[in-house]
Amino acid sequence: MVGVISSPPPSSFFYTNFSYHNTNPKLSFVRRISVKRRHRVLASVPDPAEGAKVEYTPWLVAGLGNPGNKYYGTRHNVGFEMVDSIAREVGITLNTIQSKALLGIGSIGSVPILLVKPQTFMNFSGESIGQLAAYYQVPLRHILLSYDEMSLPNGILRLSQKGGHGHHNGVKNVIEHLDGCRDFPRLCIGVGNPPGQMDMRAFLLQKFSWKEREQVDEALEQGVDAVRTLVLRGFNASINRFNLAQKYKFHKV
């Protein structure tokens, strides 16, 4: 059953903050704040050092895509698929509608996780992500965006701490709704380039071939492990090794 949380008044609303006693996270309503159309998030801070303790600040993991059966399984929707894969593996149900997004709340280990699939269509994804980041007080360094990337070969993943929008309209809109900040993590999923003179939009709205689908499914499994490592340990040597292994995944020596 899907629950619905109504949108807050434009001037103010209660947002949910994660508070902690020792290592046990819980949800509690804390105070009323004013929110403008674009939502300011907390500034980024240095990443945890190798071997540092787990940071119990919540993560918002958002996948970009288009809602509806028409777009299911297309290249442009692999961000949605990554969120679905994480949800299955860690046992989170996406059963709430909030801020024009499908939302699931749970944890990886003891770290609180928000899984988000904006339902605004790709080019307006930031409307949901900006509001949710402000509502749940998620710092910029813990907003992980997952989306399709044509500059990467099909089935290749890349985890990065920050970046530009790379002419991806969904990412561009997210940046706009995070006050122009670009310093948030990305999990890019390679879908390759259009063949010949094929139109880019037509290519992205196509479904994968059998071989491509096999590569993407494998990438989604590896992506879940990468996200789990990132959430529990931050950007460290394990993530660097992951990116290196992905870069040469299809190269035979």
Rank of each mutant, 00 (worst) to 15 (best):
S160K: 06
F250I: 05
R241Q: 15
H165V: 05
T96A: 06
R75Y: 09
I86F: 06
P139K: 13
N193V: 13
F242K: 06
V231D: 13
N95W: 06
A226R: 11
Q137F: 08
L178G: 01
H21T: 08
E214R: 07
R213P: 11
L102E: 06
L145Q: 08
K70C: 04
G155H: 01
S34I: 04
I92M: 02
R75V: 02
S209M: 15
I175A: 03
G164K: 00
S6K: 15
G79K: 01
G126P: 06
G109S: 14
S19R: 13
S107M: 10
L114Y: 14
H21C: 12
Y56D: 11
V54E: 08
E89V: 02
M1T: 06
W210T: 15
D148N: 07
Y135F: 13
T96M: 12
Y135R: 12
L220E: 08
Q222I: 05
T120F: 00
I105Q: 12
V174S: 09
L114N: 08
G155K: 00
Q137H: 02
K249L: 11
M198Q: 04
K117V: 00
V83W: 06
G170I: 02
N77E: 04
E218S: 10
K100H: 13
R40M: 07
K70I: 03
T96H: 06
S85E: 15
